[in-house]
């Protein structure tokens, strides 16, 4: 079962929840945690695990062959992302805009834009007891998270098939990287805080999950802060609020020391138990996931 932890708003506690939930689950069963916030992965700060290794990740980018090109301009016309420009007798390719769709390369009548590998980042994997931890990190200057997120999920599918809970720590926001990180999830947990900004961004995330037809629920973090508008919104929208984590200074202190919370703070452990009960009560829980291998 794949569970994505997303939020809309940044800084609401995705990583806190993902790392604590995965570590707690791993005390009793096989669990995978994947940090898909590849622009700034930070789950690794909280996971003490043995490094298993790392691999470079590549995307495919067209490379212009001036000798073969007749300057017909088809490549520029078919590119949906403005990644190809023609200035006088030169074709310019912008790798940061390219989405590796192959249209220019395939439709070029002269084969003048062969696709070439270009390194975009690195994937690392770790193991500690029942917990497998995978994180990917984009190289500095790389603008596109989506291809690396897709390859990281593919890595998890390949290496951790079957009846295993997989927690995906998603990026913030509601744009392409979040879509990629949540689109295959059996359940999306939206972490929010009970503030006006938390509510605003939660509602954007909810609209996104509805459009993706995902099953989703809400966890309220820093409960006690702000007001009750998030809860009324969830009632109105018929969205289950499955747990609350209190607004407590000691939580921030443990967090800033890079420590997990549930051993130290019973309210966090209670919240995790509620979340796990919700996950286990879902139809399909405990069954081998389809299409895993």
């Amino acid at each position: 079962m794949k569970i994505a932890v997303a939020s809309g708003k940044g800084g609401t506690g995705k990583t806190t929840l993902s790392t604590n939930l995965a570590s707690f689950l791993a005390e009793s069963r096989e669990t995978v945690l994947a940090d898909l916030d590849v622009e700034e992965p930070n789950s690794g700060l909280f996971i003490r695990a043995e490094a298993g290794g790392e691999e470079d990740k590549y995307k495919m980018i067209p490379e212009w062959d001036a000798g073969k090109c007749t300057l017909c301009g088809i490549c520029r016309e078919v590119c949906n992302f403005n990644a190809i420009t023609q200035i006088m007798d030169e074709i310019m390719v912008f790798p940061q805009l390219c989405h590796s769709c192959y249209a220019c390369s395939e439709l070029c009548p002269r084969d003048a834009l062969p696709m070439k590998k270009q390194k975009m980042g690195v994937l690392r994997y770790f193991k500690q007891g029942n917990l497998s931890f995978v994180e990917s990190e984009l190289d500095i200057g790389e603008e596109q998270a989506v291809p690396l997120i897709a390859q990281t999920i593919a890595y998890v599918d390949r290496h951790c098939p079957g009846d295993v809970i997989k927690i995906f720590d998603a990026p913030p926001g509601t744009s392409c990287p979040v879509i990629e990180a949540t689109k295959d999830a059996d359940l999306v947990i939206l972490v929010t805080e009970p503030t006006p900004v938390g509510l605003h961004d939660l509602s954007l995330a909810v609209e996104t999950m509805k459009a993706l037809k995902r099953d989703f629920c809400v966890v309220i973090n820093r409960d006690g802060l702000g007001n009750a508008d998030v809860e009324s919104y969830c009632v109105r929208e018929n969205i289950p609020v499955i747990a609350k984590i209190p607004n407590q200074r000691s939580i921030a202190e443990f967090y800033s020391d890079g420590k997990l919370l549930y051993h130290e703070i019973s309210a966090v452990k209670d919240a995790l138990e509620k979340i796990i009960a919700y996950i286990d009560a879902r139809p399909g829980a405990g069954k081998t996931e389809k299409g895993a291998e």
Binding site: A83, T85, Q86
Partner: peptide, 10 residues
Amino acid sequence: AHGAGPKTAQ
């Protein structure tokens, strides 16, 4: 969504 700069430059 992407590539406004190169498009406008073109």
